[in-house]
Design a protein around this nucleic acid. Structure first.
Lengths: 226, 226
DNA sequence: TCAGTGCCTTGATCCAGATCAACGAGGAAA
DNA sequence: TTTCCTCGTTGATCTGGATCAAGGCACTGA
């Protein structure tokens, strides 16, 4: 008889591929938590109690002092945050604010630290998930250091959809303000840059963006970061 | 009877804490490789054959197209690079150029992918090493997005020494050119910024830097990233 | 010894994006 | 309705760092 929370675990990248036995063990210790839009799930500097895996809805990871907040990345369903801090038992380097209502699985940090030394499948999967995320961060660093605002915005938009070509309409993963810091620019600049991209077939309406032709935008992004 | 390469493995953060049995297994498959200054160990876009762990000397990790190279980070003795690409079997996102003569242990990527699914200690340690590195990258992103060149340089210098207070003399981990891109600025700007820091007790002489008072520099860096 | 070549510094100018300052368009509360 | 908000846009101006253009200095090799 499977644990009732196992189906939730299967929706999370970190756990999806694990064998049933591992899932049962983990299911014993996780809890499901609802959160509402704009709520802070945790703040920079706190000691990690949980790893958060999103079943529904998402958050924005923010670093830096108040008012000087730098958006690091957006996270949505199936993704997990705080694995690094939880594994090492070190204070968070970032805060997380919900960008919508949703639900997250909370895995107690202590338990996870214990399990990772006992369960190969879990440990290996953690390493793989961290590796994948490492690559995302590297791309971001490369991009900030070598490309201008318009290119970065174009790349960001393209990365928000699976579609490779043709027209799409997508919803921004947060407020324009947040998108702006994610891109390392100010809201005013985002506004103006968005206007420039109109020449490349990008129309905005609130938080939904219509791209006339994904290829057209992709062409703007230099080959190295595609 | 221990394998002759085990002592080398013990100098690497990734392996140091592993049990003897794991070390023996790994020692069977690693090779020791010398490299000389300015040599490229691997280039962006290639398929990963090895993870590189530095026994002596180090490299600079570079991303982006030629001429537009962004220094991501410097690596030295005891550190390992390419773990993420090797684990996932995806092309490198960066190149590595040696910043000195040295020796590295090469761990075949395929073997590692195999071992990580069998050896808990290794898998768990990979996850921890990746976690630690994740935090380094997050700090870098936060810093680029929220601080000016002078602050970033001050922080970088302070991070190059263990000393917490008083005077130090340290050696830069690469050419000034490279330090500049690591900081996300141009060599000319580094030169000028270094001059500004003279008012804060920083003197340069080739690739050695004398800091009159570490506290004085630390004070320049805003609290959040200290 | 002198040319050739990298690496770094300095000076002058330029520009992308920041900053400062209004202002309009929703939404919520009264 | 009006009165606040908060979010986003727009315009004018400023500025940190980039870019362009000369040198200077140390090393190498003939």
């Amino acid at each position: 008889m499977a644990h009732p929370r196992v189906p939730f675990l299967k929706k999370i990248g970190l756990f999806a591929s694990l064998p049933e036995t591992s899932l049962e063990t983990i299911a014993e210790v996780v809890g499901l938590q609802r959160f509402s839009n704009h709520a802070y799930l945790f703040r920079e500097g706190e000691e990690p109690d949980f790893v958060y895996s999103f079943v529904e809805g998402g958050v924005v990871l923010l670093g830096g002092a108040d008012g000087q907040e730098a958006v690091i990345e957006f996270f949505g369903p199936g993704e997990s945050v705080l694995l690094p801090a939880a594994l090492l038992g070190l204070p968070y380097l970032a805060s997380a604010r919900a960008t919508s209502d949703g639900q997250a699985l909370l895995i107690p940090a202590g338990k996870l630290r214990q399990l990772i030394d006992q369960d190969v499948a879990l440990a290996a999967q953690c390493a793989r998930v961290l590796s994948r995320h490492w690559r995302v961060l590297i791309s971001q660093i490369k991009e900030i250091k070598t490309h201008g605002a318009a290119e970065r915005l174009a790349h960001f938009l393209v990365s928000q959809t699976e579609t490779q070509a043709g027209p799409v309409t997508l919803t921004l993963p947060g407020m324009k303000k947040e998108i702006a810091t994610r891109l390392g620019i100010k809201p005013e600049t985002l506004s103006r840059t968005l206007k420039k991209l109109r020449d490349y077939g990008v129309e905005t309406e609130g938080d939904s963006v219509r791209i006339a032709s994904v290829e057209r935008l992709t062409a703007l992004v230099s080959p190295a970061i595609r």
